[in-house]
Design a protein around this nucleic acid. Structure first.
Lengths: 224, 224
DNA sequence: AGTCAATTCGAACGAACGTTCGAATGAGTC
DNA sequence: GACTCATTCGAACGTTCGTTCGAATTGACT
């Protein structure tokens, strides 16, 4: 007897040789159902009873798998973000061209976004829903992702001798990409490949100075 | 006796010759305090007791000014959005140049955003928090604003003979601009004028085809 | 001072919230 | 069948939620 859930909650020590247990499978089922609910009703707006109904498990049963609603959101966000970063690093390996690397970054982001829209909406929309410990651990991953993108843009700037503000450029790029969850309709809008090509064009041309060595922004584009 | 609030809730018929009553003044005070709270804790996360504390009025007293928490959010969002559209139209009047009109659009949006950050965060972040009637009335304003921007971009495309997808371009622009509430720090980042210049540069150069008549996106920029 | 309506409030309503607990199941081993 | 541990559940905990109501207070006008 005693509290069985205590042993079950002990995290795995070695993430590498992980045998996929029944516990792990059940947990990720719950996470995926919860993601849908959080996406539809928001973190604060979704109740534990909503999650219970969606995952087909009793209210009390859920607490065998995580100790609080906040930790549940944390698990979802961390898994989503970690996966995105992991895939990105794999895709960047071996590619040297600065432009191509930025295009890979955009494609990776949009592809995962469109194929896991609910998870990515929860990640971006419920950005500051977590508190203290949870928040800071997630902020660390976010900062790594941001820095990585800054590195790509800085490299591109160096190669092309540009002077735009990296911070503004990167934040604008994130804005373009993350805003997608508010408007993208799979039945109307194009897929990740075309969208990332379009946004890549806008972004790369956008931060590249005018062709004939004119330094300033395009001003009074003559009609000739 | 009787319910005094019923008469008070009747909306003004003629918005033009409106005498600013004590009621109106008090209401907008409450709205501005509520905006701060919604901004900090989110719509669902903020309780009526939070709003009561922030505005220095009793819990019951609030209900003299609006009949539900949802209507309160609606009033905030509608007022904010209407003001932005109104200012924009005034600024666009008399300006014919397509590029200049887009730059005015961006400046107007960012300027209001940065000077009324809490209100604009509530407007963009609590986008789908409203239900049914409230939601559709707000969606109408949003659609008008969107169409207006589409018109500006289409005109720019026509003048310059461009072929980019208007929808993707406009949505990317909104993404760049609206994402600001997640990262802008007044003590570090530049103001509305410079930001709108930078974003305007990125966007306008971005949707403009390569300089030497090359039609496609910049590809394999040679290092020569 | 007295009157009437506009405004504000304390106290409470029922409902829903996140979480807990002990008992009931399920699955695997003797 | 009996023992064990992992998993699930019904029922309830105390708290907070949005909202209401009748009474008290205020402000404007005679």
């Amino acid at each position: 007897m005693g509290s069985p859930s205590i042993a079950a909650r002990i995290p795995r020590r070695h993430p590498a040789p992980e045998p996929i247990t029944r516990y792990d499978r059940r947990l990720s089922e719950i996470l995926s159902h919860a993601t849908e609910v959080f996406c539809k009703k928001g973190y604060e707006g979704a109740s534990m009873r909503d999650l219970s109904r969606a995952s087909g498990m009793s209210l009390a049963g859920l607490y065998y798998y995580f100790e609080s609603k906040e930790r549940l959101l944390f698990l979802i966000q961390k898994h989503t973000f970690t996966t995105v970063v992991l895939r990105l690093k794999a895709r960047l390996a071996g590619v040297d061209d600065a432009e191509e690397r930025i295009r890979i970054f955009i494609l990776n982001h949009l592809e995962y976004f469109l194929h896991n829209q609910p998870a990515m909406k929860v990640l971006t929309h419920e950005d500051d829903a977590l508190k203290n410990g949870f928040a800071s651990e997630l902020a660390a991953i976010k900062r790594e992702y941001y820095r990585l993108c800054v590195g790509l843009v800085d490299e591109f700037k160096k190669v092309h001798g540009l002077q735009v503000s990296t911070r503004t450029a990167v934040m604008s790029l994130f804005g373009m990409m993350n805003w997608i969850y508010t408007w993208h309709n799979p039945r109307v809008d194009s897929g990740a490949e075309q969208l990332s090509r379009e946004m890549g064009d806008v972004f790369l041309r956008g931060i590249t100075a005018g062709a004939r060595g004119r330094k300033g922004p395009l001003r009074k584009v003559s009609e000739s």
